[in-house]
Design a protein around this nucleic acid. Structure first.
Lengths: 195, 195
DNA sequence: GTCTATAAGTAGATAGAC
DNA sequence: GTCTATCTACTTATAGAC
């Protein structure tokens, strides 16, 4: 059915977020004006303020949404008691989740410094919770004598950096499939943690 | 000896670059105005244009200088024919070099998108040359039967991402010394490449 | 080499018509 | 819900005095 003319909030809202995400990722938050976002959406700049109280809140909303999605997707996976299987699951989940939304990943790292202090703390807390999940897997594997990783916290940071780095070079149209990349990285991680 | 009044180009120039580096790293290139840089240096905005033709050239100069330093520092190291020793040398060099200049490392990754196309290509060429050095070490180790790394290019990207990630968490005043961090990462890399 | 002053343009955000 | 118009402030870069 045709919608009532002028009642577009449920379609324009997501379009504003999509345009902001794409433009922030490409040019950076500070370099993108509200007018550019409006032009991408096809409205005038003033109309954007029906969907966000200000530009800062728009940025925070994108980052918060990304972190919430990340933690929710992890929580939706079944618990895995075997540390080796749990680590393999984490590695493959991380690569796949991050490759599926490169722009959100990019701004979630790049634009942290453009968040106001309270917003920054909010995102950092979520990020640390995610890192802690990997650290917990590593500690359980060390405790079970399955892994050789004397510094689980450092190892967790190293593994996450390595995995997120896939986003800098992987292209879906390239030589390697996503499944092949997952296998290559799982093999490197498995060896790196001494299993 | 007191300098001739008004002859400060040899001192103001580096101060402009230092201030720009620090401010770009903290707030981002697009978010920092020439007036802010001038204020940090202690001059008026107009005076900055004695040291750079424009803001874009100032950014490019910082990134180009960083990449030149990186490649020159690598070239200054003695050649190492043993792939294992060469890899150990690369790992420890990379960590140390990058931890010594976190701000330059940060903007060299974050501000690539704010470079004009020709400047971007120039920096990317240097970055690829550096990555190629690690890839060459890995291939020589695989050829010698010392490493198990079926995808040397992917492994090189994974190792560099892991190593550069140290900058996100390491603090000189923290629990671990630089030498300890080098040892922990070298151990992880050594195992990851199957040695 | 640095200053002041200014040109010419753009920023985020708001007001009020429709 | 979107528009046009506008406010105020700030932007890069330049001109010319000293």
């Amino acid at each position: 059915m045709a919608r009532t003319a002028g009642s577009h909030s449920d379609i324009t809202g997501p379009r504003v977020r999509d345009a902001a995400l794409r433009l922030f990722a490409r040019h950076g938050y500070a370099a993108v004006s509200m007018r550019q976002i409006a032009k991408e959406v096809g409205v005038q700049a003033g109309a954007l303020y029906n969907y966000t109280p200000d530009k800062q809140t728009l940025l925070f909303s994108l980052l918060k949404g990304h972190m919430d999605d990340l933690l929710a997707a992890r929580a939706a996976l079944p618990a895995e008691p075997d540390p080796v299987k749990a680590l393999e699951g984490f590695v493959k989940f991380h690569i796949r989740f991050h490759l599926e939304r490169p722009e959100a990943v990019f701004i979630s790292y790049m634009e942290l410094r453009n968040l106001e202090p309270a917003n920054f703390e909010s995102i950092e807390t979520l990020r640390r919770a995610y890192e802690h999940e990997l650290e917990t897997i590593l500690r359980s594997g060390v405790d079970a004598g399955l892994f050789d990783a004397p510094e689980p916290r450092v190892t967790a940071m190293a593994v996450i950096a390595m995995l997120t780095g896939v986003n800098t070079w992987y292209r879906a149209k390239g030589r390697l499939t996503l499944a092949e990349v997952e296998t290559i990285y799982w093999d490197m991680v498995r060896k790196a943690v001494g299993h």
